[in-house]
Computed example of a mutant assay.
Amino acid sequence: MKSTTKPLLDAWQWQMRASCRGLDSAVFFTPHGERGRARKRREEAARAICRSCPVSTACGSFATASGQYYGVWGGRTEAERRVERGVPRPR
C-alpha cells in the first residue's frame, strides 16, 4: 500500500528559503504593551522583509491553515488575518 503522507521535511522545506530565517523574531511578534506608532513601525519593518521573500505566499498559507494568531506571517499582520477569518477585533 502506498502512503499518501508527505515526508515532514518536504512540508517544511519552504522555511529554508525564507527571508526571515535567522533574523530576530521580535521583528515579527508584538512585545507586551507595544501600541500605536511603535507597533506600526515594527509591523512595517516585518512587512518589508516579507515583500522581498520568495516564500511569503507559502508562509501566509501556513499561518492561515495552522491558525497563527500572533505575528506577521507572509506579510500579513495579526489584524489582517483576523479580518480574513471573520473574527471581530478585540476590545
Score class of each variant (00 low, 15 high):
C59T: 08
S25N: 08
L23N: 10
W73F: 05
T4M: 12
C53G: 13
S3M: 13
R39A: 07
C20N: 09
A11W: 03
E80Q: 15
A63M: 02
V55D: 07
G71S: 02
G60F: 04
W14K: 02
G33D: 12
P7M: 03
R76L: 14
S25L: 13
E84Y: 03
T77Q: 06
E80G: 10
P54R: 08
A48F: 00
C59A: 08
G33H: 08
W14Y: 12
S61V: 12
S25V: 12
E78Q: 01
E43I: 00
Q13S: 15
F28I: 09
G22C: 07
R42N: 11
E44V: 02
V55Y: 05
M16R: 13
R82M: 14
W73P: 09
R42T: 01
V87Q: 11
F62E: 08
R47D: 06
Q13K: 15
M1A: 12
G74C: 00
A79P: 01
P88W: 00
M1L: 14
D24M: 08
G36W: 09
A48W: 00
V55W: 10
K40Q: 14
E43N: 13
G33V: 07
F29D: 03
C50T: 00
V27N: 05
G67T: 04
A48K: 15
S61W: 03
R21P: 05
R21C: 10
A65V: 05
P7H: 10
G60C: 01
M1D: 09
F28D: 09
P54D: 05
E84D: 15
T5Q: 15
A58K: 10
W73N: 04
R42A: 04
R41I: 11
W73R: 04
R51P: 01
R35Y: 03
R39H: 08
W14L: 02
L9W: 06
H32A: 11
G60M: 00
A48H: 11
Q68P: 02
L23S: 11
P54L: 01
Y70H: 14
E78L: 00
R85G: 03
E84T: 09
L9K: 12
T57M: 10
C20Q: 10
W73D: 03
E34H: 02
S25E: 12
M16L: 14
A18I: 08
R21N: 14
A11D: 13
A38S: 15
Y69S: 07
A58H: 11
G36C: 06
R81M: 07
G86W: 05
K6R: 14
G22Q: 06
S61G: 11
K40S: 09
Q15P: 07
R76V: 04
G33Q: 06
W73Y: 07
G74Q: 04
W14E: 06
D10E: 14
R85N: 09
K40W: 03
G67L: 05
Y70S: 06
C50Q: 01
E84G: 11
F29K: 01
S19E: 15
A79C: 04
R35F: 08
V83P: 02
W12Y: 12
A11C: 12
R47P: 00
L8N: 04
T5F: 10
V55P: 12
A18F: 09
S3V: 11
E43Y: 05
V83Q: 13
S61T: 15
R41Q: 14
A45E: 12
C53S: 07
V55F: 07
S3Y: 07
A26W: 00
P54A: 03
R35M: 06
G22E: 09
P54T: 06
E84I: 06
G22W: 04
D10Y: 02
A38D: 13
S19N: 11
R82Y: 02
